[in-house]
Amino acid sequence: MKGLEWVEAEINEMKNNESFRPLTELESDQRAKVMINGKEVIQLSSNNYLGLTTHPRLKLEAVRAVDTFGAGTGSVRTIAGTFSMHEELEKELAAFKHTEGSLVFQSGFTANQAVLGTLLTKEDIVISDELNHASIIDGIRLTKAARSIYRHTDTKDLEEKLKEASGYRTKFVVTDGVFSMDGNIAPLPEITELCEKYGAVLMVDDAHASGVLGRNGRGTVDHFDLNGRVHIQVGTLSKAVGVLGGYVAAPSAVIDLLKMKGRPLLFSTSHPPAVTAACREAVRVLQEEPERIDLLWKYTKYWKKKLKEAGFDTGKSETPITPVMTGEEKAAHELSDALLEEGVYARSIVYPTVEKGKARVRTMVTSEHTPEILDEALEAFIRAADRTGLQRNE
């Protein structure tokens, strides 16, 4: 179409430099094995850490909610879209996270935008880890606050940035709890101590720690026994929780301000009944079925051990997020394509999602993967690596 020629040119450039990838269609529910292009393959790319997307209790509550309350809510939360079930979910989330209150958003992305866009003004400075999630980066861009970036998980550099941040109303430090591409955990105890030393507010995005770390999956704050010392926790309801959405767990004053000024809440229709009811049931399952988290970590350790024994470079991962590093973008795409032919779906991750030269195939273990399935996946990785010429440390 006339006027959008530059769009076609950009797409063609992406195809030429191997950064354009079509979407993959799944033809089944989300389990350890899925159907893609009519073929059953091992799924190693989903965030369904605990298998809750297909949990019978969540499915039943979703159906019941639709029967009782309908398919949607018909309004934003602040007008006519707050149902009793929304309030109940938020009360249970706050109790689960050991915070005064919580507030649910349409996604973890919008939860981060709401917090940063609401709490930060030109009077403040935000200090952010250089590898924080895109939703944090975009949230910061929406504010007029001063910005400072510290080297990834480098607490010495963070302290220097805190020392330099004098004269602002609020020094606001934000970090991922678990970093989504490398799978490493933020040094939260040290960060918390620095924030306390310099009077800074601390916000943690626990998207990939919710349901994974901490007692019953309460996240990195609980994992490090820092309850009551971290000001704001953000997480998702769409990864280990298995459904959709995001949440903020924080002091009541923060929650109240977000209700009045959080633009994603003010201008988006609220969670539909099926989603709300399923999320609430998931919080209960986390507390009643801790064996799912035990299995997740058992299989995660097994998978990492097997990959390393086979000579694959898994970077600095400490969590179920386990990258297989390839370096170059083309090598990552070739490995991912070969894996699919060998019966494993593991997506390649390249620039701009990660730095140039740090491409990888990111694998995600769940509680539904068994040693037998993972052994099968490992053999596929070895065959695919041999086919594509990926070097292994044998």
Results as ranks from 00 to 15, higher is better:
327 G>F: 01
43 Q>E: 15
136 I>R: 00
391 Q>A: 12
318 E>I: 05
264 P>G: 11
340 L>Q: 09
274 A>M: 05
24 T>C: 04
309 E>Y: 02
74 G>C: 01
249 A>R: 02
40 E>I: 03
116 L>A: 14
171 K>A: 08
122 K>H: 10
300 T>F: 02
364 M>I: 11
45 S>G: 14
275 V>T: 14
77 R>M: 15
94 A>K: 01
187 P>H: 11
4 L>I: 14
45 S>W: 02
229 R>G: 14
16 N>K: 15
40 E>N: 03
12 N>C: 01
128 S>G: 10
218 R>V: 07
382 I>N: 12
152 H>F: 04
23 L>D: 01
105 F>I: 05
69 F>H: 15
24 T>E: 00
95 A>M: 10
166 S>D: 13
214 G>F: 07
7 V>D: 02
109 F>W: 09
144 K>C: 00
1 M>C: 12
229 R>T: 13
147 R>N: 03
278 A>W: 09
347 R>H: 13
370 T>P: 04
376 E>D: 07
186 A>N: 14
28 S>E: 10
9 A>S: 08
9 A>L: 14
79 I>K: 15
110 T>S: 15
129 D>V: 01
71 A>D: 02
173 V>K: 04
374 L>P: 03
252 S>H: 07
221 V>A: 04
248 V>S: 07
319 T>V: 04
248 V>P: 08
77 R>P: 07
137 I>K: 13
298 K>T: 11
376 E>W: 10
353 T>D: 06
301 K>F: 06
247 Y>H: 09
71 A>M: 14
140 I>W: 04
137 I>V: 15
264 P>I: 12
367 S>V: 09
134 A>R: 14
132 N>F: 04
207 A>G: 06
360 R>K: 14
292 R>H: 11
159 E>F: 07
221 V>P: 01
150 Y>K: 03
309 E>K: 03
28 S>Q: 07
371 P>W: 13
284 R>A: 06
46 S>E: 05
243 V>G: 06
368 E>P: 00
274 A>P: 05
192 T>K: 10
306 K>E: 12
215 R>P: 05
293 I>E: 11
188 L>N: 05
15 K>Q: 15
51 G>N: 07
27 E>Q: 13
58 L>I: 13
105 F>C: 03
19 S>A: 11
297 W>I: 04
146 A>M: 09
4 L>R: 00
33 K>M: 04
57 R>I: 10
